[in-house]
Simulated scan of single mutants.
Amino acid sequence: MAEVPEIDLMDVAVLNDPFTAYERARAESPVARLGVPGFPVPFLALTRHEHAKALLADPRFQVNSGSFMPPPGIPEQCLAYMRTMSEREGPEHTRLRKLVAPAFTARRSGRFRPRIEAVVAQLLDDLPGNEQDGSVDLIAHFARPLPMDVICELVGIPEPDRPRWREYGAAVAAGIGTAFAEAVPGIVEGAKAAVERSRAAPGDDVLADLVRAHDEGDRLTDVEMVTLVWHLVLAGQTPTLLIGNAVEALLTHPEQLATLRAEPDLMTGAVEELMRWCGPQLLTTPRFAQEDVDVDGVRIEQGSAVSAAIAAANRDPAAFTDPDRLDVRRGAGPAAHIGFGHGPHFCLGASIARVQTEVALDALLRRFPDLALAGEPTRAPDGGTWRLAELPVKLRAE
């Protein structure tokens, strides 16, 4: 392989400002090498929008068991539910996607909007009661519980069980570790119970849609339905991270915040712009090259792991005008961001994530017109995601 720039994902400078690191790499080469201690094969990232987007729909690059390693400490009886649709390719993936996709359309997500609005309103009602010394952590008391509360609505978790599911969500959001592993059995058992309830008495939720879903006699098994609930819990962290990043971005760009407050009809497009500009995923799940592939003169060898560098592609000047500027008026252009991926593995829950984020930001900004930062936000050091650990805010002007 020709000489390509290297990005050390453990480097503090990269962790603190990945966008600058990816910008430099993108300017130098369409391919960057990712420094990840102990990774068994060359790990590369495509830095330019054209190539990154193409990668995600290219059958020469495929996800496999090496793309997702089971987190340590997961009990043996739970491992059967850990291999989600994202790890599957070919007919296996196509079958599952065809069965579940109708439950996650934009129209279906829109029908859930009133229930999402009710969840958001309750969390906002509770925010003032969580203030300490005049400020409240918006991650802990709003962005983090929101997706789990919505998932509980989506899969029919009974009200008495929902506080426990919030704890599961917090453990998963904190990243792989002891708490993460300890949460998995509870999620699996709760999902099994939810599937049984839905089969016995289907309600107006996603599981009921999936119980009814069939294609030429083919139906989801109980294991596949429980696995999908686990998938929703994992993917449900995207709104948590996006809402936190979005609020920080707007509060540190007061002219954009003022525009959005003055023209709330811009919110739908603003969510897309925020996903482009400060979306939580820096890299896509790695795909493995099935053969040698040339990317604009750089040879990628068979067996190499390759990710699309979302942080680079979504700020590529070849695809976006003035890409480093946050602009809630940007609207749709000739290029689309890849914050939710692209191709066969495009994020199944993108529509739900969009609705959650739109509802959350709109309601938060209306409810607290004097919302302001109350100190420096704390970022979690993570080479794969851009996420806040804490976001202290003041709800009212002093």
Rank of each mutant, 00 (worst) to 15 (best):
V293C: 07
R330H: 08
I338D: 07
W165N: 08
D382W: 05
P381I: 08
V120L: 04
L266I: 11
L220D: 02
G90N: 11
D125W: 07
E131N: 06
R197Y: 01
R315H: 15
G331D: 05
R115K: 11
D126E: 15
D324G: 14
M275G: 03
A350E: 06
I151K: 03
L220A: 04
E159I: 02
I74L: 14
R396P: 04
L207F: 02
L207H: 08
V233M: 12
V184P: 00
R164W: 15
F39H: 14
I151F: 14
A235D: 11
E216H: 13
A27K: 15
T178R: 15
A179E: 15
A235R: 06
P317K: 05
D294Y: 01
D370A: 09
H49P: 03
P323L: 00
L326T: 13
R88W: 12
N130T: 12
S67N: 06
P72Y: 07
C278F: 00
S109Y: 06
V226L: 07
A80E: 13
A308K: 00
P91D: 10
A311G: 15
L34V: 00
P280Q: 02
D316L: 03
G384M: 11
P114W: 04
D8T: 00
R367T: 11
R379V: 01
M69K: 11
A258S: 10
E23R: 15
A332R: 14
D324H: 14
A57T: 06
P37C: 09
I243S: 05
N130M: 12
P30Y: 08
A372N: 02
S198C: 11
G175Y: 15
L234N: 06
L55F: 02
K394Y: 07
